[in-house]
Design a protein around this nucleic acid. Structure first.
Length: 465
DNA sequence: TATGCCGGGTA
DNA sequence: TACCCGGCATA
């Protein structure tokens, strides 16, 4: 009793499949609207149920259990296909074992909707065609809900497509960088590489730091490898520091000098080998010259011919050239820098500075006749005396002022100059001149007749020893 | 001691 | 830059 009601209740509303009911091959589906007992077989003791099915076309038809069984044999198949993904149809298991006679009737019960609430069944009745899709939609919505739950807890990147597109730009930029960094033409100068990086990054629209920190570009190692495989900027900068610190060039020329320095340095295939490599060079101490040569003979010849105006060979040299150059120990890199920074100055020295000749007349007094002649030394190497020989520093000071731009080079040069001669003892402190001086010549009473230097208690410029 | 002059200070 | 001067070295 209870079971029957349960079965009836379960059968009603079930969907059946009725192929060829209308004669054509088009399958029709229907929903069992009612179940009634057929007494025709009561004699056999077999009560048969007649099912009233509302067909899809709106007609009502009665089907026997066998027909229904055949019909439902296909219907669940179809429905199960749609619903298996959601429910699996396992909820009907207990029902199957409750009534063995309902094996045929249980077929509709295979439908998952069978155990659903009446409200749902009404939905099935009214809109049965939408029913599978609805369940499907529900299942999909469940999946989406699950995804949302997962998404809420897991940070799933969105708009991944666009990000990949951006990545492609980055990849392209990185490929360009790779080709640039591996190119022999730009392998050496890191500055150019960095420029290329910047440009490419700009084009790529991403900042380099984001990738350098994240290491996302594991294959873009060339940008990083540029440091070990090429003269890395830190290394080169360190190697430059020792001789760039005293660099003579001011800030405006830094770029040029640096560029030149880089060119000199980075053209070397193995710059590291040059590090700590000391080389003895000979630097001309002639004022505004500073020419650096690698050999003493060369610098002597330079001084002798250029500054002293002697065209003879070294045989006729009296060794005066020795006073006008100094020996410097430099890194090979420093030499290059020194050459680049000093050589442009040298040509301006060929003409002797007018300082001494202008001072020699010394028109303030009447000693013109006496100092009308100047010593060859004073004529030939006045500025050198200022540099090498500080006795005329007071005279050199106005002359040095004309050599603006010499800057640190001058001070450095003076330092270098003063050291070797003083070490030699010749110029530590100029010994008192043996010749007559303004004091002796004019006396204290005629002090106004002294040369300026004598008045200033400086080395006499009139009676130079 | 006288002289030469370097180094530093000042205007 | 011109000028001055203390102080040192040297004859």
């Amino acid at each position: 009793m209870h079971t029957r009601r349960l079965v009836k209740r379960s059968v009603i509303g079930s969907r059946v499949y009725a192929p060829g009911l209308t004669g054509d091959a088009a399958p029709l589906t229907g929903v069992i609207q009612a179940v009634k007992q057929d007494n025709r077989d009561a004699s056999t003791g077999h009560r048969r149920n007649v099912y009233t099915v509302l067909m899809q076309d709106g007609t009502l038809k009665d089907f026997s259990e066998e027909e229904i069984a055949q019909m439902t044999a296909k219907a669940p198949l179809k429905s199960s296909l749609k619903q298996s993904s959601c429910n699996g149809g396992q909820r009907d298991g207990p029902t199957q074992g409750q009534n063995g006679s309902m094996q045929k009737g249980e077929v509709p019960s295979l439908s998952p909707e069978r155990t659903e609430e009446p409200r749902v069944l009404e939905h099935k009745r009214s809109g049965r065609a939408l029913e599978p899709e609805k369940d499907h939609t529900r299942s999909v919505s469940l999946l989406e809900q699950k995804r949302k739950v997962v998404s809420s807890s897991i940070d799933v990147p969105q708009a991944r497509k666009s990000e990949e597109e951006v990545d492609m730009d980055k990849v392209t930029a990185a490929m360009v960088l790779t080709s640039l960094s591996t190119s022999p033409l730009v392998r050496s100068p890191p500055v150019k590489v960095s420029e290329g990086l910047n440009g490419s990054w700009k084009d790529g629209g991403f900042t380099p730091c984001s990738y350098s920190s994240s290491g996302y570009w594991s294959w873009s190692a060339p940008s990083d490898q540029s440091n070990p495989s090429t003269p890395s900027p830190p290394l080169s900068a360190d190697s430059f520091k020792p001789f760039r610190m005293p660099s003579l060039s001011g800030p405006p020329d830094d770029n040029i000098d640096e560029h030149d320095g880089n060119s000199l340095l980075f053209d070397e295939p193995i710059p590291r080998k040059r590090k700590n490599s000391m080389k003895v060079m000979f630097k001309c101490l002639w004022k505004n010259c500073g020419k650096v040569l690698s050999t003493a003979a060369g610098i002597q010849r330079h001084i002798r011919t250029v500054h002293l105006g002697r065209n003879c060979d070294s045989e006729c040299s009296d060794g005066e050239e020795d006073f006008y150059y100094t020996e410097i120990k430099l890194n090979t890199d420093s030499v290059a820098d020194g050459l680049s920074s000093l050589s442009p100055v040298s040509p301006s020295v060929l003409s002797p500075p007018p300082g001494l000749d202008q001072r020699q007349p010394d028109g303030t007094n009447g000693a013109k006749s006496e100092n009308g002649t100047t010593t060859p030394l004073s004529r030939s190497a006045p500025s050198a005396l200022y540099l090498v020989h500080t006795d005329h520093a007071y005279q050199a000071s106005p002359t040095h002022s004309r050599t603006q731009g010499f800057g640190e080079q001058r001070s450095q040069t003076i330092a270098v100059l003063s050291s070797p001669p003083r070490a030699a003892g010749s110029f530590s402190r100029k010994s008192r001149g043996e010749g007559k001086k303004c004091r002796k010549v004019y006396g204290m009473e005629n002090r106004d007749m002294w040369c300026t230097a004598c008045r200033w208690k400086k080395a006499c410029q009139r009676f130079v020893d």
